[in-house]
Write a protein that binds this DNA or RNA. Structure first.
Lengths: 234, 234
DNA sequence: TTCATCATTATGTAGGACAAAATAAAAATA
DNA sequence: TATTTTTATTTTGTCCTACATAATGATGAA
């Protein structure tokens, strides 16, 4: 299949610098030696000597790992392996304005998939307290037809759903996808006019949560998101 | 709610270094000035001077952005903003052995959600060729009961499903989640014994794809993954 | 024994130097 | 004049040295 995005298919000619090499070497080393969080790493100078590069290069590589949260370092005590922040790297590059169109589209779809798959986890974890909070959100939402308000409650409602899964990573993830989602929708609106709204409202979804089962909720959600699904088909 | 994971709730005391500051400053700068891919960045020395730090520090920060694919640089030509690799940062930290237990669990659930949400995109995009390939995979799978083979075809089948979505990001994402999934399952097996298999097989799922609709497929998938869902409830 | 002081050590930051590559400018050739 | 070759320049990549800083351990004084 001839892909639309060449740069994804053909590997970029990367004039790999020493820092690049050292970075992967270090990661390999940590993996091979089965380093665990808390373990102390060799000193910068030792690494530099062992790899036969300058301390400078080692530091550039370490700086990268430090950004990802893989290592922490304090003066004199040296560096220790840490539990990385799984979404940190994601967060930093999640900017609709610099991502290419295909990736944006991919992420848009990803969120749709997440919403559709949410039901089962939701029914496993949700509490009465959650439902009450959701009730409040829906309650405040009525009669808000202006754009900024609509968006605000859209985020509040769906955000609460993710929160109800009790899955922290999940929630952060969706929060990061939000700007992308909004961007894609608004861009689309510029071309094809304002998107229609699905027949199923937030209140309907809440009602389904209270009285229905996962399947009912999922069908409701599908209807709620139907304009976006329509868009996807093109 | 008292969380199980303290380090996620309380912000880590981060003795932020110059490189940290410069990194965020740079990202802010790029965003504020609405840099687009292809635009040339100021020279290292100019940045160093403007920020009043050594070129060394600037380079450490730039090295981070370079790792994320946000910038590319060539000698003499300087640096240009590039389209970052959205999953690059993810890929680098996706190691079951260094991620904490909660995050692993979160990612495990994330994959379950993805599988459940897959159906609609799948029915929108799948081709006859896809189904034939899936047929082949299922065909080779029969009579393979030994562990390593089972895992292999498990990956092949589900991997193909993701590929059928035509969503590159999606596919890469699931590929990265695989090691986590396997790890969690095998760890679980050590404690509670080998997990049972769902009643719905890959062949059944394929049949559903051919003859049924999204809802049927989803129900099948839910059954197929039911042992994992059971595990989740605890 | 306890507290204060000092020495040591590893990371963090600064600055200078030069190599290498890519470009622009200048010179030489057809 | 047009084109190729050579030279100069510029910017990143790498190395080195030096010192500040903070945490640790050792030493010595009360």
């Amino acid at each position: 299949m001839a892909s639309k995005n060449l740069s994804k298919d053909i590997e970029k000619i990367a004039p790999s610098t020493m820092a690049d090499v050292v970075e992967t070497r270090l990661r390999e080393y940590l993996k091979r030696k089965a380093f665990k969080p808390g373990d102390a790493l060799p000193k910068e100078l030792e690494l530099a000597e062992a790899l036969d590069v300058s301390r400078n290069v080692v530091r550039e590589a370490l700086s990268r790992l430090r950004m990802l949260g893989m290592i922490e370092s304090r003066k004199k005590r040296g560096m220790v392996l840490a539990e990385p922040d799984i979404l940190g790297g994601f967060e930093r590059v999640m900017d609709p304005l610099i991502l290419d169109q295909n990736t944006l589209q991919d992420l848009f779809e990803l969120r749709l998939v997440l919403e559709m798959g949410l039901a089962d986890v939701l029914y496993t974890r949700m509490t009465d307290k959650d439902l009450k909070e959701l009730e409040q959100i829906v309650g405040k939402e009525i009669n808000k037809v202006q754009k900024p308000f609509k968006v605000k409650y859209e985020i509040a409602f769906h955000g609460k759903l993710y929160q109800m899964t009790g899955n922290e990573t999940f929630m952060r993830f969706q929060n990061m996808l939000l700007p992308v989602f909004e961007y894609v929708v608004s861009e689309e609106a510029k071309i094809n006019g304002e998107a229609k709204v699905g027949k199923v409202t937030h209140r309907d979804l809440l009602e389904l949560l209270k009285t229905g089962g996962p399947e009912d909720f999922r069908q409701g959600m599908k209807e709620h998101l139907s304009p976006h699904f329509e868009r996807m088909k093109r």
